[in-house]
Nucleic acid binder design. Sequence first.
DNA 1: CTAGGGTTAG
Length: 586
Amino acid sequence: MTHHYHHQHQQLPYSPPHHLEPTMASSNHHIYSNPIFYLLGLCDNVYTLKTVHGLLVVHGLTRDISFNTKLVSLYGSFGHAKLARLVFDRIPDPDFYSCKVMLRWYFLNDLYREILGFYALMRLRCRDTDNVVFSVVLKACSESRNACEGRKIHCQIVKAGSPDALLDMYVKCGAIRDARCVFDELYCTDLVSWTAMIVGYTQNGFPKEALKLFTDNKWAGILPNNVTIASILSACAQLGNLSWGRLVHALAIKLGLVLPNVTNALVDMYAKFHKNEYSRYLFEQLSDKDVITWNSIISGFSQNGSVYEALELFYRMRRGNVLPDAVTIVSALSALASLGALQVGSSLHAYSVKKGLLSSNVFMGTALLTFYGKCGDVRSARKVFNSMEEKSTITWSAMIGGYGIQGDGHNSLALFGEMLRAELKPNEATFTSILSACSHTGMVRDGWRLFTSMCQDYNFVPSMKHYSCMVDLLARSGRLEEAYDFISNMPLRPDISLFGAFLHGCGLYSRFDLGEVAIKRMMELHPDEASYYVLMCNLYAADGRWNQVRQVRELMVNRRLNKSPGCSLMELDIGYDSTHRVASVG
DNA sequence: CTAGGGTTAG
């Protein structure tokens, strides 16, 4: 397309200079009801268009901005950008829309230099702009190699660009530091940007920063809305800070913000704090429960160990009219895994396949393979693992742990090696799983090697779980002195389960001497913990020292310590649609 | 600007 039009093509039907036309506000009646507008629609070339344009002039309609804009658009569409511009220049007060129409035809006719000239003019007349205009103008700069103009427009974009959108973009990308930069540079912070920043922190695992921003006096003038409250409640739950959670709950009541989304967040938070009654009360109170409400309580109860309550609610949900989604199934599977309820879980597997919930969902696949692993069906677990397109570190850890609880440390180690070859980074939990696998399989050397590697190569600070695995590893294999030294030298205060692992080994190898020493240390460290007395009883019982057992029991009664009896469970006649029944044994 | 999810010793 050439830019050079012949002069005669640029002549328009006569119309008086606009300052001579009657000044009249643009007509109220809609141009679509005018027959001439209909004629304009029939024009399929520039000659017929000029004829109808003449009609518009005769009828004095060229002072109407809508007609003029339509003319600009039509001249442009016939490739006559310059005629379009002549019409445009006669519009007394062009608006943003008419400017955009003009720009569009320059753009479609590759008239980049004209675009820049027109844009400069346009900036003088109207202050509006949008992303379409910016992208057109930027393209014009690059096509005409005008970096200087480009830089100016860059600045305009930075100034005009919605900071909230920019913040949101960084938050969605998980680039939380960049988000904070944008936030700090904002000319004025309002409720939306403040909330967006809080949401960003909460969703990216920085609940402390979220709470800090929420409580910062700098923003004392801004009242939170329901989005802010829901997000900050989630931060309190992540932090495990119940007192702040309660304060925010109270604040929400005062501000009248206990809306459904806030209630959902409260249900979730109280469940995470083991406050099942609060959680349930709020849940029952909410009249329109959506899938998130149900998931909040089911996942909360499943996570805090109230698995029966979680499953009860899951069945109730199934009877109602809210359909479970992937999150629901994941939570239910996790509850079923801890019960070893293989049949119910398998039917949920079938259900998920049927509903298409399984495909390409890492959470779902991981929960499912964990479930099969915990139920002892490690082959099904591996099948699920192999079929997963996307696997995360958690997926690999779960599969390694699945082999581990079967005592198949060799497969655990093999998979761990495969994971490293795939250049995936193990995390703390991966090491917990693999160390436990080593201890179940009696692989003492491998266990030590991996423990050392975890500290030295990966710079992980061992947690109580790691230490417990090591104690278990050593104690189970009869290296009780070594285990005792290990406990004495570790930097953490040993807890009940660590001592439990040690005492278990003492019982296995009849090292009651070492067991008694450990018990004395335990009693010094935690005098009020009933579980230690039970461990002590077990040890004396294993040694046949029944008088000692009786003495410890009396000591417990005197100190008013109580331990609820444990019981094991087995699955009885559980069908997909039947209610859950589990017998307790022993 | 929106609440909910998978792995972790015995």
